[in-house]
């Protein structure tokens, strides 16, 4: 809290402070609402609000690209996934919200630990008067990387990051970028294969002959099931039984 409030006045005017406080209050309020609302869907919607206001906070820090990504990825894609899961499990399942004492204690301890770690990591070095990232920060000594190059990167980039990212993607990282497109293609094909109820079998004429041949055969169409083979083996009396070696 204080760290952003401290930075804001030096970076801009009063409007920025107002915007910051508005988003900060919405972010905290919606975060509390997420864990206190009884209706799971309401909680999810509050989480969207939280993501949006965090995106707004990124905007006040002049990080337009991160802000857009926050809204698109978290507010869009990830929340849709959450809602899918909620809908699949059933909206009226309020036993999802029941937590026994042990879970509560664990959750509170985990939350406290995370908050402590964040405060410990950021409040000290980044918020004090002699902050390593503040306007009067001393130049980092040898071996120190804190905030090095940040100002130069901002100057070069209009403070948005999008230009630098785009430039990198289309020059240095063209090849992995195109490979990533291929990765999405593979994922799509795979999803279609796994989700299709009826398989897209090639229209082969000889599959009909195969069916006729299979009908005379030992276990017919049951090629995929091991049951036929196992039964046959059992009759034969040699029952080998795969030796399982723990993986």
């Amino acid at each position: 809290m204080t760290l952003l409030a401290q930075v804001a006045p030096t970076a801009g005017g009063t409007a920025e402070v107002v915007v910051f406080w508005v988003f900060a209050v919405i972010a905290l309020g919606s975060a509390i609402a997420v864990i206190s609302l009884r209706n799971v869907v309401h909680g999810a919607v509050m989480l969207v609000l939280n993501f949006l206001s965090i995106g707004g906070l990124f905007l006040t820090l002049e990080s337009a690209f991160l802000s857009v990504i926050q809204v698109l990825v978290y507010g869009g894609a990830i929340m849709v996934l959450f809602l899918f899961v909620i809908m699949l499990l059933g909206v009226d399942r309020d036993d999802l919200l029941q937590a026994d004492l042990r879970t509560r204690v664990l959750a509170i301890a985990g939350g406290a630990l995370l908050a402590g770690a964040v405060l410990f990591a950021f409040v000290g070095p980044y918020t004090s008067e002699a902050s390593v990232c503040g306007p009067d920060a001393p130049a980092p000594g040898p071996g120190e990387v804190a905030c090095a190059g940040l100002a130069e990167a901002y100057d070069e980039d209009d403070g948005a990051g999008a230009r630098f990212l785009g430039r990198s993607l289309f020059t240095t990282y063209t090849y992995p970028f195109e490979l990533a497109a291929l990765l999405l293609t593979v994922a799509t094909i795979g999803a279609v294969i796994l989700a299709r109820r009826r398989d897209l079998e090639p229209e082969d004429e000889d599959l009909a002959d195969l069916d006729a041949a299979a009908a005379d055969d030992l276990d017919g169409d049951d090629l995929d099931g091991a049951s036929g083979a196992a039964a046959e083996r059992h009759v034969a009396g040699d029952g080998p039984g795969t030796t399982e070696r723990g993986g």
Binding site: E201, P202, D221, D224
Partner: peptide, 10 residues
């Protein structure tokens, strides 16, 4: 794949 009837087009 044909014998096992899993010769999908993909």
């Amino acid at each position: 794949l044909r014998d096992r009837r899993i010769n999908r087009a993909e």
